[in-house]
């Protein structure tokens, strides 16, 4: 697990990273996510799950997370330590699922300016990414206020817990 703000190494992939890659069926039917996350992205990059480090940042092209509603897809990334997911665009259920786990899902048109291994500093609330390797600053689309508040609480369940306690 990792704070949403801070630095990490980028893992850059392409378009249409689907939920069958992020959470192959055996990884969420036959085991808990803590074990299942070891199979995250296995069909595409068998090296990813073992090499990714806490605080790293997942970077994808268009339509990140297309496919199933299975939320083990973003949960696996979170459990592997992914701090934030950046993409040119997201598939809608994956987008909500990722934010619901308190992991910033940021729409960034300029992800092509990031290479695997680049050290990035992500400021989720400001919607800003600094590429420490190139010195560039990349802008993300700002998250709506209600989602900012949810991320600040750590995700939908803690957010709801806080809300229920206030009522």
């Amino acid at each position: 697990m990792s704070d949403s703000n801070g630095t990490g190494r980028a893992w850059v992939y392409g378009d249409n990273i689907d939920t069958d890659q992020l959470a192959p069926i055996h990884s969420y039917k036959n085991m808990e996510a803590e074990e299942g996350c070891k199979f995250c992205l296995e069909p595409l990059d068998p090296n990813f799950a073992s090499a990714v480090k806490i605080g790293d940042i997942f970077v994808a092209g268009n339509n990140m997370g297309i496919g199933s509603s299975r939320e083990q897809a973003p949960l696996h990334l979170k459990l592997l330590g992914i701090r934030a997911v950046l993409a040119k665009s997201f598939a809608r259920i994956f987008y909500r699922n990722t934010l619901n786990f308190g992991v910033p899902a940021l729409v960034c048109a300029e992800v092509d300016r990031i290479n695997t291994g680049d050290e990035l500093r992500v400021d989720a609330l400001k919607g800003r990414i600094e590429n420490l390797n190139t010195g560039e600053t990349l802008e993300c689309e700002p998250l709506p206020d209600h989602l900012m508040a949810m991320i600040a609480d750590g995700g939908l369940m803690p957010h709801l817990k806080n809300k229920l306690q206030r009522e």
């Binding site: 509603s69 299975r70 939320e71 259920i93 909500r96 699922n97 619901n100 786990f101 209600h146 995700g155 939908l156 369940m157 709801l160 229920l164």
Partner: peptide, 18 residues
Amino acid sequence: VGIGATELASVLATGEIW
């Protein structure tokens, strides 16, 4: 609309969704 399990839990608790 299709939603994930966490969001489903929230709907079960509140009956609402954004």
